[in-house]
């Protein structure tokens, strides 16, 4: 008997009666999502900028203060072409200093942004640049993770999916918060 069979048969011998799959029925706020999102994001050290469709590019320029900007957003790729090469991920010349992407939606309760292969184009781009800008349409905000996973279930299946809720951080040395532990040191969200 291989280990799979051994494990499954050990479980089946004692498993007992199946319990029903519970209903998930919880109360929470469904209003003022933008305010909640901004409050939580800022508390986690994320900078949030409010923009309109016309001022997004300007906000990117202002926050990034120049530097090597690359973007996976189709509308921005002409201006900020993506030269990052997954085959040589740590090559400094190809690594963006600032990476601009767009989340398909955001979650108000925890300021998490949903990014998949589709938005990132390279998975590592969510982690390796020093600074990241995420564009987010304010009308995509959902109150909680419940709606978030409903969205995910309704979207075409992802290969890699990520909730990003801030810059990389650690508090592993005496509980002192340090930003930029391994991944991006700064995260800005442009809500429009």
């Amino acid at each position: 008997m291989d280990s799979k069979e051994r494990i499954l048969s050990s479980l089946k011998n004692v498993v007992g009666e199946p319990l029903p799959r519970p209903e998930i029925n919880l109360q929470y706020k469904t209003e003022a999502l933008t305010e909640i999102f901004i409050g939580v994001a800022e508390a986690s050290g994320t900078e949030v900028f409010l923009a309109t469709g016309d001022t997004v590019a300007e906000t990117i320029e202002t926050w990034s203060k120049g530097g090597n900007i690359q973007s996976s957003v189709p509308a921005l790729q002409k201006k900020y072409p993506l030269v990052f090469d997954e085959q040589v991920p740590f090559e400094k010349d190809k690594m963006p200093g600032i990476f601009v992407t767009e989340a398909s939606f955001g979650v108000a309760e925890n300021a998490a942004l949903w990014l998949t292969d589709h938005e990132l184009s390279s998975r590592l781009l969510a982690f390796i640049p020093e600074r990241i800008i995420v564009l987010l349409k304010a009308d995509t905000l959902v109150p909680t993770m419940h709606e978030a996973y409903e969205n995910i279930g309704a979207e075409p299946p992802f290969g890699f999916g990520l909730f990003m809720a801030g810059a990389s951080k650690t508090a592993d040395i005496e509980q002192t918060l340090v930003k930029g532990a391994q991944g991006a040191k700064e995260l800005a969200v442009i809500l429009y």
Binding site: S44, A111, M145, H146, L162, F163, A165, A167, G183
Partner: peptide, 27 residues
């Protein structure tokens, strides 16, 4: 649907964050 419940609970219970900075789904 069930995962949603746990991503709401984990970091709040663990470190008092609303969620971990990265919640990565490898499919």
């Amino acid at each position: 649907d069930e995962l949603a419940v746990f991503t709401r609970l984990l970091a709040r219970s663990a470190t008092g964050q609303p969620v971990t900075v990265f919640t990565s789904h490898y499919r």
